[in-house]
Design a protein around this nucleic acid. Structure first.
Lengths: 347, 347
DNA sequence: CTGAAAGCGCTTACAG
DNA sequence: CTGAAAGCGCTTACAG
C-alpha cells in the first residue's frame, strides 16, 4: 500500500514523467520504455492514486447522487440504471440515501462540494431555504429530477398531467367519487403536482372535490395501507375508486382492501403511479401511470455529462435545460368500469 | 469554485496554517483569529477540498460498496442501513451495483483501490481467480457478506442451517415431497449453502432428493415465476411444498401458482428467504427465513471501521473476524400442514 | 498562540 | 522520445 509512481520509475530506471505517460497513454513513448514501465508496474503491483490525479487534474469522475429512499423499488431502478450508464462512461457514484429530511440534503450537498464531485443528481424534491441557496450559487453541474421552480436543468415527467390523466381515466370508467392517497405536499412534483392534476381533473368533469377523501402519505406501502384503512373506516361507501401517488401506496391500499374482505376491482378500483415492479407483484396487477425509468436515467446521465463537459471547455456557459418525458397509462387488472346498480356477486 | 485556503488566509490576514487549524479545530487558536478566519470563509464562500486533504492525510472517509442488485428489496434495505450508519460516523459510500458478473466486480475493486477508499464492503458472493487474487493481496480493510472460504472478515448468517431449518419446517408440517427454487450454485452462500441445507434436511428425514424438483434461478421475482411454471408443467402433483432461496422468487412462485388457479397454502405451501418487504406484500404473506437486516448492517459497518481504525494505529495487524448472526423463521400465511386425504374444497 | 516551509502523489508545460 | 521541476490544495512537524 505504499508503492508510488516514484518507486515504479526507479524500478524501471526511467523518470516519473515517463511512467505517468505510460499510465495515461498521453504521448508517444518508445516500446522499449513502455515495456520496462509496465513490467515494473506489474512487479510492484502498483495502483496509481486517483486522489493525487484528481487534485492535479481538477476532475474526480465522481457523481454525487441524492436519493430519498433506495428501498423504494422505483428509485432503486433509476439508481441502478444511472449507475450502469455512468459507469460505462467512466464515472463513479457517491450515493446518499436520505431517509429523513431536508437538513441532511444540505449536509450531503456540501460534502459533495468538498469532495469536488464533477456533478450531482438530485432526486429529492422538497425545497427549503438552505437547499435553495446552495442550488442557487453552486457551480457544480446539476440535474434535478423535479421541477423546483428554479433555473436548473431537470429531467422530469409532467406530474400534473399524469395526475390529471390517472384521474380522468377513472372518471372515463364511470367513477365520480374518487379518493386520493397523495404524497407529501411539500414534494413539489410527486406530492403537489399529482394532487393538483387530480383536483383539476375532478373540477373539469364537474366533480366536487371532497377534502375528506384526500389523504397524505409518504409513498411507502405501509402508509398506503394505513390511509386506506382510514378511508374505509371514515368514508366507506363514499368512493368507488382510489388514485394513489405511488405504486407502493397503491399496493398497500389493495392489500388493505383485501384484508377488509372487499375486492379489487370489484368493489373498488385502484390506480397507482410509477410503473415499478410492485405494480406487477400485487394481485390484481396494478393499472398505473408508468414513468419511463430507462429514459429518465439515460437523459439524466446524458444531460449531466453534457453540462460537465461543456463546463470543462469554457467554464462559464451554464446551459439550463428541461427535458420532459412522456408517461404512459398501463391498464392491468386493478380498475374496472363503475356499475351503479351492480348487485354484489361472488365473481 | 476557485477559492482556496490561501485566498482565505489572505482575506483574513493570517497564515494558511491558521486557517487550516480553524477548519480542523486541531489546536488552540485565539478567538480573535478564529473570528477573522470564519468571517473570511463566510465572505468568500470557501469550501475546503477533501481531495487535497485526503492526499495529505492519506484517508478518504470513503467506503466502497459492491452490491449485486440494488433493485432487490433485501439488498436495498441493507445498503440503506449501511449508508445511514456509516454516514453518521463520517464516511461516505461509493456504490457499485453489479448487475452482471464477476468481471465487473474486479474492475470496481480496482477502482476502489485507486480511489484509496478506506474500506470495502463486498456483498457479491461469487468467486473467480481474479477476485480471489485481489482479495488475497489487498491491504484495504474489507468485510464480506458471505463465506468465500478465504481468510477474510465476514458478517453472515448460517445459510446452511437456514436452508436446513426452512426445509425441516416444511417436513415438520407433514410435507415429504418438497421442491426447491434455488439460487445460483456459484453463489457460495445464498446459492450453494441454502441448497445444501435443503438436501441434508431431506436426507436426515429419510426423504430422497429428487433432482427434477430442484430449479436454479437468479433470486428475482421473474425467475421464481418462470421456474414455478416449469415445475407445474413438468412435475405437477409430485410436490406439496416449495422452498425458495429468496422472497422475491417465493413471491413469483406464489403469483404463478395463483395464475394457475391453485391456492397457497391450500394446494401448495411456499416458504421464502430473506424477510424482505416483499414477504409482506404478497398475499398470503410469506412464511420466510428472516435475515436480521439491521444487525447485519450494523455489524458490517462496526467491524469494517474497527479494522480501519486498528490499521491506522498499527499498520500491520489485520484481525480477521467472522460474525455469524441468527436467522429466524417467521410464520405467516404461506404454509400449512399437509393433509394427505384432503378433498379439494373451494375454501 | 502563530507562521514558513516541506511534502502528500500525481500531471504537464517546458526544454532538450 | 525523454526528463527536471513546478504546482494542484491541503496538513503538520518544527521553530519561535
Amino acid at each position: 500500500m505504499g508503492v508510488k509512481i516514484k518507486d515504479v520509475a526507479r524500478a524501471a530506471g526511467v523518470s516519473v514523467t515517463s511512467v505517468s505517460r505510460v499510465l495515461n497513454k498521453s504521448e508517444h513513448i518508445s516500446e522499449k520504455l513502455e515495456k520496462k514501465v509496465l513490467r515494473a508496474i506489474e512487479d510492484l503491483n502498483y495502483s496509481p492514486s486517483l486522489i493525487a490525479k484528481s487534485l492535479k487534474r481538477n476532475k474526480t469522475y465522481l457523481i454525487g447522487v441524492i436519493i430519498p429512499d433506495i428501498t423504494s423499488n422505483f428509485q432503486a431502478m433509476i439508481l441502478s440504471r444511472i449507475e450502469e450508464i455512468a459507469g460505462r462512461r467512466g464515472y463513479n457514484l457517491l450515493v446518499s440515501n436520505i431517509v429523513e429530511d431536508t437538513e441532511k440534503v444540505v449536509k450531503y450537498l456540501n460534502i459533495y462540494q468538498e469532495m469536488r464531485v464533477d456533478g450531482i443528481v438530485l432526486m429529492h424534491e422538497k425545497l427549503n431555504r438552505d437547499i435553495g441557496l446552495f442550488l442557487d450559487k453552486t457551480q457544480i453541474p446539476l440535474v434535478v429530477h423535479a421541477d423546483l421552480g428554479m433555473n436548473l436543468s431537470t429531467v422530469i415527467i409532467d406530474d400534473f398531467k399524469a395526475g390529471y390523466d390517472a384521474t380522468s381515466y377513472l372518471i372515463s370508467q364511470g367513477h365520480r367519487r374518487i379518493a386520493m392517497i397523495a404524497g407529501d405536499k411539500r414534494d413539489l412534483c410527486a406530492g403537489l403536482k399529482r394532487l393538483e392534476g387530480y383536483t383539476v381533473a375532478c373540477m373539469d368533469h364537474g366533480i366536487e372535490v371532497n377534502e375528506a377523501l384526500i389523504r397524505y402519505g409518504d409513498y411507502k406501502l405501509s402508509s398506503g395501507y394505513r390511509l386506506m384503512s382510514e378511508l374505509l373506516r371514515e368514508s366507506r361507501g363514499e368512493f368507488t375508486a382510489v388514485f394513489a401517488a405511488s405504486d407502493d401506496m397503491a399496493a398497500g391500499a389493495v392489500n388493505c382492501i383485501h384484508d377488509h374482505q372487499l375486492h379489487v376491482p370489484g368493489d373498488l378500483s385502484v390506480i397507482g403511479f410509477d410503473g415499478s415492479q410492485i405494480a406487477d407483484i400485487v394481485r390484481p396487477k396494478l393499472t398505473t401511470i408508468k414513468q419511463p425509468v430507462d429514459r429518465i436515467s439515460e437523459c439524466t446521465v446524458d444531460l449531466l455529462l453534457e453540462i460537465i463537459e461543456a463546463n470543462e471547455q469554457s467554464s462559464s456557459t451554464h446551459t439550463m435545460r428541461t427535458i420532459v418525458l412522456e408517461h404512459e397509462l398501463v391498464e392491468q387488472g386493478s380498475c374496472r368500469a363503475y356499475e351503479p346498480r351492480r348487485v354484489p356477486s361472488k365473481d
